[in-house]
Each structure stands twice: as C-alpha cells, then as structure tokens.
C-alpha cells in the first residue's frame, strides 16, 4: 500500500445536554470513562488519527479527526454557528433512555446543514448499557434514524460499545 496522505477533518458532536458527548469523545480518544456529569461549556477540540483507508479511486488516505465536543445545544446560542463552520461531518448524539434528547436533533441537523451543506452525519444512540435488550426505545431509535435519514449506532461510552465504529462510519463517508 502506498504512503497514506494525512487529511485533517473537522467533526462536531451535536446533541442535547447530558447525552454523553464528552464521554464518547473521551472513550474514543483516550479510552477512558467517568460517571461524573460535568456540563461542557463552549467547546473542547480533541484529535485522533484513524487507520489508513483506500479510497475508491485508489488513493490511500488517513484522516486526522479534529473532534469538536460542543456544549449541549438545548438553546441555540449566538456562538454555536462559529463552531459549526468548516466541518466535514457531525455526530448526532442522543440518550437512548431520555427521549426528550431526541427532539432537538432534526432542527440541529438542519442548522448544521445550512452552514455545511455537504456534511456527513451519523446518529450515536448512547447509554445502551442502561437499557435492556428488548426495550421499546431500541425499535423507536431505529425508526427515528430512518426518519432523519441517518445511519445509527447503538453506543455506550461506558462499555465502549460501537464507539470506534461510528467514528469510522462517519469518516468513511467523507
């Protein structure tokens, strides 16, 4: 395989407060988890280089993700659009156990698209570890993902379940 080209891509984590955006990033970048809930203010940018992949045209690329862990977007503050600019994609994060956290997603997605029309999206349905296998929300989140036309991953920042996968899934669509 030829020497990969390193490409930096900006990715934002969007979603309501307390859905586990910071925990997902910490699990993905540092492989750690902390149960303590501390609201994020503003944004924290973390970086991670993904394994090299071969694109359909034969070029080998390696993405360096600049992951923007943005404060909960319950209220759309004036400085949020500044964070969104120049992103290649976004992770839409929701709390599987708290359906209220799903409701702001379509609006957030639209605002993000307005600034980044070509952006790719994945839905990370987090806190899977708190739900039993047959809980109704599991079916409902699949329907919700279909409704907003985004691929979805059932994730747990606590156990690490699917955390790598959804970031790789997002990068594969750049």
């Amino acid at each position: 395989m030829q020497e990969p080209v390193l490409i930096k891509k900006k990715v934002c984590l969007l979603g309501s407060f307390n859905v586990g955006k910071t925990s997902l990033v910490r699990r993905f970048v540092y492989n750690v988890f902390d149960d303590l809930y501390l609201s994020t203010l503003g944004v924290k940018v973390s970086q991670k280089i993904l394994p090299a992949i071969e694109k359909p045209d034969g070029t080998v690329v390696q993405y360096q993700l600049m992951i923007w862990d943005i404060e909960g977007q319950e209220k759309f503050t004036d400085y949020l659009p500044g964070y969104f600019t120049g992103s290649a994609g976004a992770v839409l994060a929701v709390d599987l156990t708290r359906k209220n956290s799903w409701t702001i997603i379509p609006d957030l997605m639209q605002r993000f698209k307005d600034i980044n029309p070509e952006a790719a999206f994945v839905l990370a349905a987090n806190k899977l570890d708190l739900l039993p296998e047959d809980h109704a929300h599991l079916k409902e989140i699949a329907d919700f993902a279909k409704e907003i036309n985004v691929s979805h991953w059932l994730t747990s920042a606590k156990t690490g379940h699917n955390v790598e996968h959804f970031f790789h899934d997002l990068a594969s669509s750049f």
Binding site: K8, K9, K10, T40, L41, G42, V43, K44, V45, M66, E71, Y79, G82, Y83, T85, G86, S87, A88
Partner: peptide, 24 residues
C-alpha cells in the same frame, strides 16, 4: 482547522472578523 476559507476572506478584507468563543 476547517476555517481556511474564513482566514482567506479575512486576509483579503472580504470579512472583517471571526470569533470562536469559549475554547477549552
């Protein structure tokens, strides 16, 4: 990263300023 176009706009005077608030 990702703000390359914004930097060019500011350098050429097409945009006066850009702010990123509360960077941790």
């Amino acid at each position: 990263v990702g703000l390359e176009d914004i930097l060019t706009e500011i350098a050429t005077g097409r945009r006066n300023a850009y702010v990123l608030k509360y960077i941790q």
